[in-house]
Structures are given as C-alpha cells and as structure tokens.
Design a binder for these strands. Structure first.
Length: 646
DNA sequence: ATAGGGTTAG
C-alpha cells in the first residue's frame, strides 16, 4: 500500500487544512484513528466531507485511508474524484484514475461517471471522452449528461450538442439534467434558434413546469441577448423562485436596462419576495449605470439591516455603484476595508478614479495592485488606460499599452486602442494616432475612429476628420453623434458646404437627431428635461437663471482646450435650449452648496454644451458635472480638469 | 451509502 503514498503530497494540503475551522479538522483526526481496514467507515467520513465542501480534507482523509492499510472500493472513488474535480486538481485526478484501474473499479457506472465529470472539470475533455468511449453499454443517461455538460462548460457547445443528437438517435432517454447541461451552451445570438428549439422540446417532454429548467432557459435567453423573449418566459413562469427573479434582474442589468431592473426590484418588494446578495448585485449595477446614488444608498441600508453577510461580489458592486455615482470617498472606504480584494475590486476603484479625472490616483492604485501580485487582465487595462486619457497622462498610457502586450502577453482590443487614440489625439498627435489605427492587429471599431474624429474637432483638422468620419459611418451608419460632430467641425471651420452635405446625408439615411435628455436627481425625485422643455413647474425661474448665466458667462469669455480664446459661439440647438442647460439651471436653483452631483446624460449628442458648462463653472463655484456612465466630464470649482469634448 | 444540474461583479 505504500506505493499510494505519493498520490497527494501531504505537505501541500496541510496549509489549506490549517485555514479551516478546527472542528472540521477534528473529523480528520478522528478518522485517522481508525484501526479498521474495512472501507466502509472511511467512505462514510468521505461522504460527510465532500457533502460539506471539505474537499481538501476529503483528499487528506483518503491518503490516511491508504496509509492505514484500508483498500478503497467503488463507493470510495466518487467522493474523492468529486473532490479533486471541485479543486481542479488534474494530477491528483489522474492518479486516482490509476487507483481505479489497480483496484478493478473501472467498470462501475458510478465511478465512470465521476471520472468523466472529474476530467471535464479539470478541462481535460479529451480524457473524459476516452473514458466515455470505453464504456460498453453507452446507454447510461448520466454518462451522457456528464459529458454533455462537460463539453458545454469547456466552451464546446457543438460537441455537446452532437452528443445530444447521438443520444436521441440511439434512443437513450434524456431528462431534465440533460437540458440543464446543454441549454447554458447557447451563449450568443447565433445560438438563439437552437436554444428556442430546445425550449420547444422541453415543453413537448412535459418538463415545462420544472422551475430549475425554466431558470436555465431564462438565462439562456439573456445570453442570447433577447430580452423580449426572456421577459416573455419570465411572465409565463407561474411560481417564480428567488433564482428566477435574480436571473431576470441580472439579465436586465447585464444588458444595460437599468430602469427595468429597478422596476422589477420594486415589484419584488411589493410581492414580499426576500432578496438575497445576488439580487442586490444586480440592483446596484443598475444604480451605477443610472447614477442613482439615492437608491444605491437605500440598498446598502437594506443590506445592513437585513444582517446579510457582504460577500466579495456585493462589496465590488457597492464600490462600483459609489464610484460611478461620484462618491469616491465612500467607494474608497469600502475598498480599503475589504480584507481580500480581487481583480474586480481593483478594477472598480481604478475605473472610478479614472472617470472622475483623478488619473494619478488611478495609476498609483494600478501600480499598487501589480505589486500586490494580482495578475491584470484586459478589462483592468481598459480602466487604467481610460484613466490616463481622461487625465492627459499621455506617456503613462502609451507605456501601459506596451506593458500589457510585453509583460502580460495580453492582446489589446479596440477598446484599448480607442483610449490610446484619444490620448494621443488630445495632445495633438493626430498623425501618430492615425498611424496607430492603421497598424492595429484587430479591426478598429467605431469607437476608435470616433476617438480620432473627436480629437480632430479639438485640433480643428478638417481633412483627417473627413477621413475618420468616412470610416466611422461605415461601421456605425446610424450613430447620429458622429454626424453631429462632423457638422460641428464644419461649423467651426466656417464650411457651410460641409454642413449642408452632412445634413443631406442624414436626411437621405432618414436619421433624426435623438431627442437628447438630461436629468437631475434631487430629493429622491428625478427631473427630466428635453431640449426646449417648458413643461417643468419651475420653467420660468429656470429660463430666467439661464439668461442671467449666459450674460455673466459671456462677459467672462471662455477658453478652449489649448487655452486660446474661443472665438465662435456655440451653435444653437434646433430643438430649442439644450436639455443640459435646463438641467444645470434647475440643479443650481435647487441644491445646497457642494452637496449634489448633477448627472448629465447624452452629452454625446450635443457636445458643444460643455463650453457652456465650462463658462458657468467659472462663475458658479459648486458645479460638478458627471456625464453618463461610459465617459464622464469633470469640472470642479471652475477649473476644467478634463479636456474631453466627447 | 456512491455519478449528471439553474442565479452574482469590473
């Protein structure tokens, strides 16, 4: 029996064991005192450990079992295989497979299935397939189920699906678990029709009342980006469980439908369905997208009062919510107090500082994160690069792109390049930015060319702007913002022919300027304005204040991003007074000094309003403008810390 | 006694 001893090096696990509760360790010790060589008492202990997720302990117990001279049997292996699978220990798993052979347990169906599952969970689907192929009577539904879900979880949906087809051809009965393994493989719009046919099959088999399957299908529709079908299914589920609600809420949140999230959350409250951590994560994500700090605060209070243990997911969601709503102090406190921060926590706080113009802090935190030994990924690089671009840290940003490629072997995608283009473009290195786009190893998307177009506006380069515009409308022909941007570039260049050409193009393509809106959250109520709005009860005062502001502001003059005088006036909105101006005036009328944040949506459409904001912030010392979630403007106390035109 | 499954963040 001593030959088994090198199966799992004991010292490797002892440090994990010491981290567990002492009473759990006591089970191990107690078991180690067995003098019997019979397998049964060991198996019982193994079952207890694996049932409670004590996988390391289970493996150690198995070692002790071998040491004591007991011989494992067919009942032993499923528990230990599950343990090595859960811990993703392929070497241990393979050694266990050898033991299975040595002890002649390889033809036990339960062991075979456990082996397939173990290999799949260690990302060794080929080995799993080998085990599967060795099974003579391949009629076992569970073996198929294990391998199908294994393929799906290893991102090989097509193999999983063809196994399902084989199963049906052979007449092997499938069941609910087959669906649960297969359906999550439909992870994109291209699989929607397959997912729908599985849904139909599921109804045909009379499994439609299985709540677990319904939840699974719901998530499938979310992943296929079909929120209408998701909602339709949701409405048809008669007795929804908490997971059903959570799947719907996080589905909306993941697809950016923040208003729907809050509506659903409210409905949950009315029906007195008790939310859990997963629910709150979705709701907080919606608050972050809307900049709705008030609701976020309520949610935090609710979490506290419910005595819920705040897990990492929830803490990260809170950090993200506060950071995006502009409350960096609160976000930082939560971040600092986290005993174990993960990559997402760092990304959230770095991104928070970045979008509010505190590029230096963001960069500092990023470097600290690297020192902590956390391996960065593409997303955290997006955060730090955009932080650099918002704060004008050109050199740092370029260095990070290099670091990302060289040190970490990460392939930059369009998002990274658009940050760098923005960065170079803003300081006037337009040609360099253009060359970078041409040299990209991935196809540039609209945002990349859009960043160049925006930079062309700042530096009044009409020629390059036309080039960028032609590229960008090819990629995003219906994005009105780009037409407006080019039109504004022509306006500044006094090129009336160009303006006409853009207008004509918009008319030909039947593009109408989206009614931009701005809103301001005040005393728990959201006040929404559209351009030329006169429906608000305070309309009179708002317009009066606006006139006064315009007068004072024009006396103060303005400066463009190079510090030169702005010669031309902002083009008036054809719809009337810009919605941003109305919201700003309303906010100034109704807020206390220094306490409120004004959230402006859709500045992208009439970006020229920022000149107004800039001028106003020179004469009003409490203006703090946060733009929508993707790109924020930051002006404070009259100093513009961000030259962002977009 | 033993195998296969649904919801969470940047």
């Amino acid at each position: 029996m001593t030959r088994y001893l090198h199966l799992v090096p004991l010292h490797k696990y002892s440090r994990f064991v010491s981290r567990f509760h002492t009473n759990k360790a006591a089970i191990v010790t107690k078991a180690a005192n067995f003098t019997t060589t019979a397998a049964t008492p060991w198996n019982t202990q193994l079952r207890n450990l694996s049932k409670h997720g004590q996988y390391y302990e289970a493996l150690i117990l198995y070692l002790q079992m071998l040491q004591s001279g007991a011989t494992p049997n067919a009942f032993t292996f499923p528990f230990v295989l599950k343990s090595s699978a859960s811990l993703s220990l392929p070497i241990t798993g393979k050694q266990l497979h050898c033991h299975v052979f040595k002890l002649g347990c390889e033809s036990e169906p339960f062991v075979q299935t456990a082996l397939i599952s173990m290999y799949c969970r260690c990302n060794l689907t080929e080995s799993a397939q080998e085990v599967f192929d060795e099974i003579p009577q391949r009629s076992l539904t569970v073996c198929y189920n294990a391998l199908i879900s294994g393929y799906v979880q290893n991102c090989n949906f097509l193999n999983g699906f063809s196994l399902f087809t084989e199963m049906r051809q052979r007449g092997v009965p499938f069941n609910a678990v087959t669906f649960l393994g297969l359906v999550p493989g439909c992870t994109g719009p291209q699989y929607l029709w397959l997912g729908m046919s599985l849904h139909c099959l599921n109804v045909k088999c009379g499994l439609e009342n299985d709540l677990t399957i319904a939840n699974c299908l719901l998530t499938m529709y979310v992943r296929c980006a079909s929120m209408e079908l998701t909602r339709k299914l949701f409405d048809h589920i008669p007795e929804k469980g908490l997971i059903t609600w959570n799947a719907m809420i996080s589905g909306y949140a993941q697809n950016g439908l923040a208003a729907e999230v809050l509506e659903l959350y409210h409905e949950m409250e009315l029906l007195q369905v008790n939310p859990d951590a997963v629910t709150f994560v979705g709701v907080l994500s919606a608050c972050a997208n809307l900049g709705a700090q008030k609701i976020g605060l309520e949610v935090e209070e609710k979490i506290r009062s419910s005595g819920m243990r705040c897990n990492v997911f929830l803490k990260n969601a809170l950090i993200n919510m506060y950071a995006r709503c502009g409350n960096l102090v609160k976000a930082r406190i939560i971040f600092d107090e986290m005993p174990e921060k993960n990559l997402v926590s760092w990304t959230a706080i770095i991104g928070g500082y970045g979008i509010h113009g505190f590029g230096n802090i963001a960069v500092e935190l990023f470097d600290k994160m690297i020192k902590t030994g956390i391996q960065p990924d593409g997303t955290v690089f997006v955060s730090v690069l955009s932080a650099c671009s918002h704060a004008g840290l050109t050199k740092k940003g370029v260095n990070y792109l290099d670091l990302m490629k060289r040190e970490y072997g990460l392939k930059p995608c369009s998002e990274h390049y658009s940050c760098i283009v923005d960065l170079l473009g803003r300081v006037g290195r337009l040609e360099e930015a253009h060359k970078l786009i041409e040299s990209m190893e991935v196809e540039p998307d609209g945002a990349v060319w859009g960043a160049l177009l925006g930079a062309c506006k700042i530096h009044k380069n009409v020629e390059l702007a036309e080039l960028a515009f032609n590229k960008v409308v090819e990629l995003e022909p219906t994005n009105i913002g780009y037409y407006v941007l080019l039109s504004n570039i022509y306006t500044e260049a006094n090129n009336s022919e160009g303006i006409l050409r853009v207008r004509l193009m918009m008319r030909e393509r039947k593009l109408k300027k989206d009614p931009g809106y701005s809103y301001f959250e005040c005393k728990g109520k959201t006040h929404l304005f559209v351009a030329g709005d006169r429906s608000h009860p305070q309309t009179k005062e708002i317009y009066k204040l606006l006139n006064r502001l315009e007068d004072t502001a024009s006396q103060h003059g303005g400066a463009n991003t190079n510090g030169q005088e702005v010669i031309n006036q902002e083009p008036p909105n054809i719809m009337g007074v810009h919605s941003e101006r109305l919201a700003i005036a309303f906010a100034l009328l109704n807020t206390e000094i220094g306490t409120d944040i004004l959230v402006i949506k859709n500045l992208r459409i009439c970006g020229d309003c920022h000149l107004f904001v800039k001028r106003v912030s020179k004469i009003v010392d409490r203006l703090f403008v946060v733009r929508d979630a993707t790109r924020f403007h930051h002006f404070r106390n009259g100093t513009c810390s961000c030259n962002d035109y977009w």
